[in-house]
């Protein structure tokens, strides 16, 4: 039995006060084990972004408890959260969020810049390694605008990997990509999953969720369903997309 890396207990997130109070999340209980590939789905307004922000330590819950790797983290200070994000989380965004006018290699190095005691040469070495994992060693000196959308998102994957994260959080990572590039990115993610990485993917596309071993449906801030899909091979899906 794999260890629980994430545990949410009765998690609630509300905005506003009194009559104006709205609940984005209400009584969410969730356990994610190490090595799982989880897709979080739901219509817009279902609370999936809020959940991802709380999971990524970018936001704090209003009520309830969040255990990351066995340690309670919902009450930590801003600086402690910064450090935890830096050490344990790998982020991917819909808009890639690479720094413009900055080479692929330097973009991958960015999280390590905020890690004390890491020399420039060591940072570069780690970044090169991460770029190699996504097959972009040849493009390390290219600027983001010299790369295709798929390549840019692969740089972002390398940036997430470079910190050796316990969890990779991907927020609609293929939202800005065409079908071909989307498949390419999902292939990389499922390979990382097979290699033992824990991945949490937020998406509204059923096809992408199919890559995950587990799909959580959110509706109105509550977990509507939590289904283990078994080992459906993603390549069959790729075939249905192919022209």
């Amino acid at each position: 039995m794999a260890a629980a890396i994430i545990q949410l207990k009765d998690l609630t997130k509300s905005y506003g006060k009194g009559l104006a109070e709205t609940r984005a999340l209400e009584g969410v209980n969730l356990t994610v084990n190490s090595g799982e590939f989880v897709a979080i789905m739901g219509p817009s307004g279902s609370g999936k972004s809020t959940l991802l922000h709380i999971l990524g330590l970018l936001d704090k819950p209003s009520l309830g408890q969040y255990f990351l790797d066995g340690r309670r983290v919902d009450h930590l200070s801003e600086n402690q959260l910064s450090d935890l994000r830096n050490q344990k989380m790998g982020f991917m965004f819909q808009a890639f969020n690479l720094l413009p006018r900055t080479s692929a290699l330097e973009n991958v190095e960015l999280p390590l810049v905020y890690r004390s005691g890491l020399r420039g040469a060591k940072r570069r070495q780690l970044a090169e390694l991460a770029l190699a994992q996504v097959g972009l060693s040849q493009r390390s000196n290219n600027l983001p605008n010299q790369l295709s959308g798929g390549e840019q998102q692969r740089v972002a994957i390398a940036r997430a990997l470079v910190v050796n994260p316990q969890v990779i959080l991907a927020d609609e990572p293929t939202g800005n990509l065409d079908t071909k590039n989307s498949i390419e990115i999902m292939e990389v993610l499922s390979r990382l999953h097979r290699e033992g990485r824990t991945i949490i993917l937020v998406t509204h596309e059923k096809d992408l969720a199919a890559y995950a071993g587990r799909v959580i449906q959110l509706r109105d801030g509550r977990v509507e369903s939590d289904i283990y899909q078994g080992n459906q091979h993603p390549l069959t899906l790729a075939a249905t997309w192919a022209p």
């Binding site: 970018l58 801003e78 910064s82 450090d83 994000r85 830096n86 720094l99 905020y114 890690r115 940036r159």
Partner: peptide, 16 residues
């Protein structure tokens, strides 16, 4: 703004 948001998400503290 986006650059700042990214840096913070990736672990930059306020003082960074």
């Amino acid at each position: 703004t986006r650059e700042i948001g990214l840096r913070k998400a990736l672990g930059a503290r306020r003082r960074d």
